[in-house]
Design a protein around this nucleic acid. Structure first.
Lengths: 343, 343
DNA sequence: ATCAAAATTCAAAGCGCTTTGAACAATAGT
DNA sequence: ACTATTGTTCAAAGCGCTTTGAATTTTGAT
């Protein structure tokens, strides 16, 4: 059923019916009631495309899905989406996931913009000089960035204090007496990864502990990779007595490797993991329970959706940015270093 | 830039430019080249809403996000989406995630349909007589169901052999000599859950082993719940010597509980888990490695996207349905039952 | 050259909605 | 009773694209 038909049914003009349904004030109360009732009865709902064409707004937020299979839809992504969705549903925004085509990310962003399929875009996983960000700023297209860049021009973003997270973790391990501390984090180039390394270095250098480049690993987040890298690390001499893991998946692989080498977690080798908080992977339920730097990626999603709404409401973006602190939560996987015989 | 402007730039009519860009045959080759080049140069890309309005097709597939936080975006969902997205991107389909509003699922589906925001819908997690399915069939709106119902009317669906999975698991445990076997699976009402229970019962009854209703648990998939329920099960007398877990998250909780009661996994108490295959939760990497019934939910997503394309191409739906077999993969977590002293 | 057929191009209508500016009806003010 | 005001409703234009049916140009055959 289309507007015209509904209007005819009611013996009214399209104008009036449209206004009644969209809550304009200049409609008689009785008429509005009658219209609403009829709309419900006939199951009328405006053709979204016609409506959008007419008003120029879409009611959808876009996210581009990287074609690279490994980056797409990890557990991080889905928790983040979940948060986004929770908030956006309040404002009846749809979430449009569009694939990157021809492996050309920038072009895909540009097409998404100029085809007017979305009102705003969410950008995730930025590099330090992310060209998507540069482009969106240039095009003046509304967006919010999850993460941070070094780009000066004002834009809206939300990031957690990644440097602080790793700094705290490393400092804590140093406090416990560790002198050989390794880190296994995400791929180089990404801001979060660089910041974490920075925090790690600061902590070590602050105590005059030399940084061993062999102990800094940048790799994909996965159980497998972490297992392999940890084995390599433990084969070093001297080997690290503590490992900071960039994600909970990484932590699983690290744990496995430590055990398989016959060490005890939290004794001979400690672990601190960054926890983005997954409902199905609980740090305190692990055996031994896992010391973590915690920051809910889901909450970040919720907040970013909020920021997006503010951006679309025309609030100036230069004031819309936040850095969230990260909590260090001590549990059993971290303790003072023990030599194998020394139990 | 809009079509009209581009056409003026080129000294051509909108008609010709439109046709050139959409690959119609009646355009001079030279002209087409010229148009394409100009479009690229000016970054022109048709306004999607106007285009959709004109052609009546959208180029997007819809999924409704349940408002119920617990059901939304679990790891299953995200793996499934990942598969969908992989395939849909080939055909340049967008994936539109729309929130359920006012907690009224059916109404939300109806609005999604009548607002013409999507060309087809994907339905997941059906019950045996799912009313969403009934409704979509009635409305003749294209959709594919992930899972199965008892609804007779023809429609497209893909399901795995859930009954077979639990039948195999239970049979294997019976073969090993277990006589007290419990199952912890998802919520009742969902088809997959009912089918699994069916398979479990068939296996037991086939051997004349009585079914103890206390040993059948239907709950949300989560580490926590599984831990608690397993503790309860192990407190029974006699307690189960084997537990079939409906998901890998469940299996984690079950493992934890078994250990915390001082039993050894695969010896005093065995586990078989259903594995939907998550890249970051690898059954063979667990300690001990986990016996599973395996079926990749990601592959299901890919396949369902394919089916969707076929449905939209007008292929009759009565032939579009598949049941995927499930593989039992033996690992260390299942073995013959051992009494505690008997090592 | 000449005309029919084929190849290109075009003007205009239509997709279903919102919104402008005008018309009409009801109410109030003098 | 008559105008000014307010409240309601309407006809028509426009959003930017596709597509129909007609017009124009090019080609090929005579």
């Amino acid at each position: 059923m289309k507007l015209k038909e509904l209007a005819e049914q009611l013996g009214l003009s399209q104008t009036t019916v449209s206004r009644a349904l969209n809550g304009y004030p200049e409609v008689n109360k009785a008429t509005r009631e009658r219209v609403s009732r009829a709309a419900l009865q006939f199951g009328y709902s405006a053709n979204a495309n016609a409506r959008r064409l007419a008003i120029g707004r879409v009611g959808a937020i876009g996210i581009l899905m990287p074609n690279d299979r490994s980056e797409r839809f990890g557990p991080h992504t889905s928790e983040f989406f979940s948060g986004l969705a929770e908030r956006l549903s309040q404002d009846e925004f749809d979430l449009l996931m569009s694939p990157v085509t021809n492996n050309d990310e920038i072009a895909s962003y540009q097409r998404l913009i100029s085809s007017k399929r979305v009102d705003a875009i969410i950008v995730t996983g930025p590099t330090l000089m992310d060209e998507r960000v540069t482009m969106l700023i240039e095009e003046k297209f509304p967006f919010v960035l999850h993460g941070r860049t070094n780009i000066e021009a004002p834009h809206a973003w939300l990031d957690i204090d990644n440097a602080g997270a790793f700094r705290q973790a490393a400092s804590h391990l140093l406090d416990l007496g560790h002198r050989h501390i390794a880190m296994i984090d995400g791929l180089k180039g990404h801001t979060f990864s660089e910041h974490r390394e920075l925090g790690y270095r600061e902590a070590l250098q602050g105590r005059g502990v030399p940084v061993d480049p062999r102990f800094i690993v940048h790799e994909r987040f996965s159980d497998e990779v972490a297992f392999r890298e940890t084995q390599r690390l433990l084969a070093c001499d001297p080997h690290p007595t503590a490992i900071i893991a960039g994600s909970m998946m990484t932590a699983l692989g690290v744990s496995r490797a430590i055990r398989s080498e016959g060490y005890e977690i939290g004794k001979e080798v400690s672990i601190i993991a960054h926890d983005d908080v997954f409902p199905y992977l609980n740090a305190s339920n692990m055996v031994p329970s896992m010391t973590t730097t915690r920051s809910s990626i889901r909450s970040a999603g919720i907040r970013i959706a909020e920021m997006l709404v503010r951006v679309l409401d025309g609030e100036p973006v230069e004031h819309i940015h936040e850095v969230w602190p990260v909590e260090l939560i001590l549990r059993q996987s971290s303790g003072p270093p023990t030599s194998p015989g020394q139990r």
